[in-house]
Simulated scan of single mutants.
Amino acid sequence: MYEGVVQDLIDELGRLPGVGPKSAQRIAFHLLQAEAVDVRRLADVLIEVKARVKFCSICFNVSEDEQCRICRDERRDPSVLCVVEEYKDVVAIERTREFRGRYHVLGGAISPIDGIGPDQLHVKELMPRLADGTVTEVILATDPNLEGEATATYLTRLLSPMGLRVTRLASGLPVGGDLEYADEVTLGRAFAGRRSAQ
């Protein structure tokens, strides 16, 4: 335990996701040793982000405008909608340069143990986007874990009566991975999703 404001800084940094007590302490002491101008720049950016960044009124991606750049881009295919858990997933998919449709960010995944159900996600906002018939395929790109699977299963059941093509991202073995280290679920999916070698 440190005294006063140093401990307050460590405590606040420790509240960030993925930052444990040791990392919080390391970051705090890095900031203490940094030049005042660098710390001020960081503080200014944090304040500016909170003031300027909001969520897209259509897809709930992060944006500085009412609508994000993807929703404003008329070159994107409006007939294909990719549903993701978080806005960081949009960035991951965009990096592949394979997807040219639009997105819908749920804001999380169904997790009863954490008290998160469909009502806590942007599911109700998804339905009007599908009602006018423009969207013909919904790609469910939720994480391949228990919560992501529960979310995908729920959405599949919800969307199936609408006559849409509902697809799920393929999953299986990573490139460069070894079979002996793959868990049963991953290996099972790799077999289920196998394709012709020709």
Rank of each mutant, 00 (worst) to 15 (best):
K50Q: 12
G20Y: 05
L126C: 03
D73R: 12
D11Y: 13
I10F: 07
E86S: 09
D38F: 00
L121F: 06
P112W: 08
A150E: 09
G107D: 11
G115D: 06
M127L: 15
Y154S: 10
G133K: 03
V91E: 14
R165M: 11
P21S: 09
E3C: 02
I58R: 15
R189S: 09
C68E: 10
I70H: 03
G177F: 06
S196P: 09
Q33R: 11
A150D: 07
E94P: 05
I47E: 15
K22H: 10
I27Q: 07
E85W: 01
D8L: 12
T153G: 03
E125H: 02
G176T: 04
L106E: 02
V90H: 09
F55A: 15
A197F: 12
T153M: 07
V135C: 05
L126R: 06
C71N: 11
L169G: 01
G20L: 01
V91W: 14
A182D: 00
E12Q: 15
D119V: 02
Q33D: 04
G172D: 04
E85F: 00
Y103F: 07
R69M: 05
L9E: 05
G193K: 03
K50N: 08
Y2H: 13
L140I: 06
F55M: 13
V123D: 09
Q198F: 06
V135E: 01
R194N: 12
Y181M: 10
V19E: 02
A141T: 03
E184T: 11
I110A: 12
T186G: 00
D65R: 14
L46I: 14
R95P: 00
T151Y: 09
S23R: 08
E125S: 10
A141L: 13
E64H: 05
D143Y: 02
R194D: 11
I58E: 14
R165C: 05
G148Y: 10
H122G: 01
F55P: 00
E147N: 15
M127Q: 10
E12N: 14
A182G: 10
F29A: 01
S171D: 02
D77R: 07
A51G: 03
S23F: 06
N61Q: 12
G133C: 14
R76C: 07
R129V: 09
E125L: 10
Y2N: 13
V39L: 08
F29K: 09
S23L: 04
R129S: 07
K50A: 06
A150C: 00
C71P: 01
V45C: 12
T156I: 04
I93S: 01
R157K: 01
L126S: 04
G163H: 15
V90I: 11
Q7H: 08
T136W: 07
R76W: 04
D8S: 08
Q7K: 10
Y103T: 02
A150Q: 13
G148C: 09
V175M: 14
V135M: 00
Q198A: 14
Q67D: 10
